Simulated scan of single mutants.
Amino acid sequence: MRKLMTVAALGGLVAASALAGCGDGGGGSGDSLTLGFSQVGAESGWRTANTKSIQESAKQAGIDLKFSDAQGKQENQIKAIRSFITQRVDVIAFSPVVESGWETVLKEAKDADIPVILTDRAIDSPDKSLYKTFIGSDFVLEGKKAGEWLVKEYEGQDDPVNIAELQGTPGAAPANDRKAGFADVIKAEPKFKVIASQTGDFTRTGGKQVMETFLKAHPDIDVLYAHNDDMGLGAIEAIEAAGKKPGTDIKIITVDAVHDGMQALADGKINYIVECSPLLGPQLMDLAKKVNAGEEVPQRVLTEETTFTQDQAQEALPDRKY
């Protein structure tokens, strides 16, 4: 009888173990959560800070993070997402390189019953069922904030204001939206004229090269609007090399508020920065846990952000985290 009871007990333990294994629906084990994340690349200081925030937050949250760097190429990102599907991760998150062309691979994730979270950048698909939520900034609003500062800065002046624009990566949501928001604000006043607009691909090198071209073709530039700090910082090098004083001879507006950009603002080389926070990691991990548990989440989660003048940058720099 004692032998029979021992066998029965062992059988119960085996059954319980088998049931626990059946309950594991993804790449993790037991109660762990596996998150597959595809990053755009490492094109800027902002992106580096964003990656660090996600990696550190996953570790703190006890989430198994499978990280992939797309190196700025959509085809790499699509391959990564398909790899995550094959690995049966619990949740997929990614920051889209461009807005279009995601329906097929996201339909594959949906068919595999793996929830998707968009981070930082949106997609232009009308099918909102392809992802659970989008966490990130309002890029149109960022462009509008840049335009509003410019309008106020030149209030009461009737002379033409010649603007050069350094755009982000073609087809990327922040490039499209920051351009649209800025244009929407300044269009009411004919004195504001965008005389040159070209992509610097969100990189410091690109910003410098394009600004060199701008300055040769348009020696009468009054204002530079750069879609991110890194392009603005590259442009500063070109402006100084041309014998002009950034922030004075050419007023500069940028977006992001990374440390190097904030330092340039504090030094008077940039005039105004619209913040776009890269520290999305904690919110992303919280959302990943909720969608994995089947909880309802808002389809749009905004990050809290501000703007900076020179004085505000000087005050904020000592405690700046990125």
Rank of each mutant, 00 (worst) to 15 (best):
T169G: 08
D229A: 08
A49P: 10
E43W: 04
A226S: 15
P115G: 07
I221D: 07
G234Q: 08
A112G: 09
A146F: 11
G234I: 02
I239A: 09
Q87S: 14
D24A: 14
D201C: 01
G261E: 03
S100A: 13
I114G: 00
A183G: 08
L4R: 14
P126I: 06
E99H: 06
D24L: 04
S44Y: 02
S95K: 02
Q71I: 00
D222Y: 03
V7A: 12
Q167S: 12
L10M: 15
D127Q: 01
R204Y: 02
S44E: 06
K289P: 01
E275Q: 15
K179R: 14
E165K: 08
Q299N: 15
S83T: 15
T169M: 12
R320P: 09
K144V: 05
A242P: 12
K216V: 13
V291L: 06
A173L: 01
K187V: 13
D311W: 02
Y131Q: 05
I221M: 07
I54Y: 09
A313G: 03
A238L: 00
A112V: 00
I117S: 01
K110C: 06
K290V: 04
L19N: 04
K107E: 15
Q71S: 12
G12P: 06
S83Q: 12
E153T: 14
R178H: 01
I163A: 12
A226Y: 09
A264K: 06
G30P: 11
R82T: 09
A8K: 07
C276T: 14
I221H: 04
L130P: 03
D31P: 10
K152A: 15
Y131S: 05
S83A: 12
L106N: 05
Q299L: 10
M211C: 08
L106Q: 05
A266G: 08
L284I: 01
L13M: 15
G27L: 00
V223L: 00
V91P: 06
E315Q: 13
I123C: 01
F308D: 05
M285D: 02
K3M: 12
A122L: 10
A173Y: 01
P298V: 12
P219D: 08
K66I: 15
L33M: 00
Q310P: 05
I81T: 05
L13F: 13
D69R: 03
A264I: 07
D159F: 10
A49Q: 11
V40N: 06
D177H: 09
P160H: 05
G30S: 11
A61K: 11
V40P: 01
A188M: 00
D229C: 01
P126S: 08
M231H: 07
S100Q: 02
D90F: 09
Q198W: 06
V210S: 07
S125H: 11
S277T: 15
F182M: 04
L215I: 15
F192T: 06
